[in-house]
Nucleic acid binder design. Structure first.
Lengths: 169, 169
DNA sequence: AAGATATACTTTATGCCTAAACTAAATGAG
DNA sequence: CTCATTTAGTTTAGGCATAAAGTATATCTT
């Protein structure tokens, strides 16, 4: 994805890798293909309809329904990006009047970010479209299999999480 | 994902979107989470072990097993990125001696890219590790369900492709 | 109280990615 | 043949992403 920074390996090339791990490589390539396709379409829609980007939308999504705002440091964790990356994104959302950033009175290192009324309006308008776009993109996939796929992906996610945590320990 | 440029919306926020499309949004969020997790780990490994990036690896993967090389214009299509993006990546791979880029004698607009012997060696070394890393990341996911997941993702990919092609028509 | 360590965040350097504008070469129509 | 169009690729401007280094504030240790 921006950034994407992901691309696809041709199926043929699997033979160039360890034959025993074909299934795992295939899962990865399919994940990448699906995410790229859907992500490209969502990004295009966001840009054309709202002149907005997905990372900015993601920040608003975190702030929506946090009536008192959020400690800035929560955002990198929830969005799985580095803190340095968020600085300019938050800067621009503040400039655009969609969120506020104020220092905590308790700890001058800490900043609290909070959506403005305008930000909330903008987010809700975009979120509605966001789910419609997704519904339309996935319309040809059988609805009956959606929940099953969610479960499989949940299990996959947890398996990967466990594997990475083990590796670090 | 290039970068990626993808982040995650909290589950809670689905209520802020159209309730009818929850399942589709959930699939998207899970796809994003899985791709981000795996991608981050692969990127880290590529950097630490080989001082290499995934986009560079992906280009080599396309060129591996194309003994006579590839028309440059094929790469953007296969890797699902824009042509402009590839120019500097190909430039650097040429500089590093991993691939060559030569003009076609038939059409002076066309360039042919081809892996060097050194590039082939480098790719095979990295590809082996790449599949091992993936196998280890997915090790805790039941092997018996891998093929089923591949099929689901294939169907999903094709469904999304059809939806986007229809939308353009 | 003073110095070491930890935390919150920003800055810098580098690379990926896109869209849109641009260059050069080939093709097609009259 | 000439001009318009198409095609292959590069360039530009701008945003996203990372890792690593830096700044400021808080906390902990003694």
């Amino acid at each position: 994805m921006a950034g994407k920074e992901f691309a696809l390996i041709d199926e043929e090339n699997i033979t160039g890798e360890d034959a025993d791990n074909r299934a795992q490589v295939r899962v990865w390539l399919r994940l990448l293909a699906c995410t790229s396709l859907i992500g490209a379409e969502l990004r295009r829609q966001f840009r054309e309809e709202f002149d907005f980007t997905m990372p900015r939308f993601d920040v608003l999504a975190q702030l929506d329904r946090e009536p008192v705002g959020l400690v800035l440091g929560e955002l990198p964790k929830r969005l799985m990006v580095t803190a340095g990356n968020l600085t300019p994104i938050v800067d621009r959302l503040v400039e655009d009047g969609l969120i506020t950033r104020s220092p905590s009175p308790l700890d001058r290192r800490v900043q609290i970010v909070c959506m403005t009324a305008e930000g909330r309006r903008a987010f809700r308008r975009m979120a509605k479209k966001h789910s419609l776009w997704l519904a339309s993109l996935l319309a040809e996939f059988p609805k009956a299999r959606l929940d099953g796929l969610v479960r499989e992906l949940d299990d996959l996610k947890n398996a990967v999480k466990r594997a990475t945590e083990e590796a670090r320990a």
